[in-house]
Amino acid sequence: MSYWVYILANTRYGTLYVGVTNSLERRIFEHKAKVARGFTAEHNVDRLVYFRGYGEICEAIHFEKQLKRWRREWKIRLIEADNPHWEDLYLQMMSVGPLHPALRVPVFR
C-alpha cells in the first residue's frame, strides 16, 4: 500500500494546505469537488502542487507533521524544486493512470 503527503494551493504563492492520504487520486478529487466542508473548500484550495509517496503510514505521517511545522518559504522552495510553475499535478497524474493498483481498470482480452 502507498501513502501520500501532498500540498495543495489555491494560486501560485497563495494559500497552502498540507495533508496525508492512502489514496491521492480520491482525496484530491474530494478537495476539487468540495465534498467536505472546511478549510480547503472555504479557501478554494484544490490545486495539487506537490506530493511524495511512502510505503509506510508512519513515515508519511511523520513527514506531514514536519511539513506542517515548516516555514512558508521552505514549503515554497520544496514545491518549486519540482514544480516551478505551480502547475496542477492532479491533471498530469490522472492522464497517466492511477497511482494505486486498486484503482486500475482491468484489461479484458
Rank of each mutant, 00 (worst) to 15 (best):
S95C: 00
Y13F: 13
Y3V: 01
R69F: 02
T11F: 10
K32I: 14
L78M: 11
R77Q: 13
R71V: 09
V5R: 00
E30L: 13
R27I: 01
I76R: 09
F108Q: 06
V49W: 09
G14Y: 01
F39Y: 15
S95T: 05
Y17D: 04
S23I: 08
G38A: 07
P98R: 12
E59F: 11
S2T: 12
F29Q: 06
E59K: 13
R109T: 12
R109H: 10
W86Y: 05
Q66D: 07
G19D: 08
W4V: 06
A102F: 07
F51C: 08
N22W: 01
H43Y: 04
F63V: 13
I79A: 03
L91Q: 09
Y13P: 05
S23N: 15
R37F: 12
D88T: 06
G19Q: 05
F29L: 04
V107T: 15
V45I: 15
V105K: 12
P98M: 12
E73I: 01
E56R: 13
R27E: 07
I57P: 12
L103M: 06
P84C: 07
H31A: 12
Y13A: 06
H62K: 03
V35F: 10
W74G: 02
T11W: 03
V5D: 01
G55W: 14
Y54C: 06
L99F: 11
L78E: 09
V18K: 01
R47Q: 13
T15S: 09
R72M: 04
R71S: 12
G97A: 11
E56K: 07
I7N: 02
M93R: 10
F39E: 09
R77N: 08
W74D: 07
D82K: 08
Y50G: 00
P84D: 11
S95G: 02
M1F: 07
F29V: 04
W70Y: 04
V96W: 12
L89Q: 05
H43K: 13
L91D: 12
A33L: 12
R37W: 13
V5G: 05
R69A: 11
C58K: 14
V20H: 06
Y90D: 11
R77P: 00
N22G: 03
G38S: 10
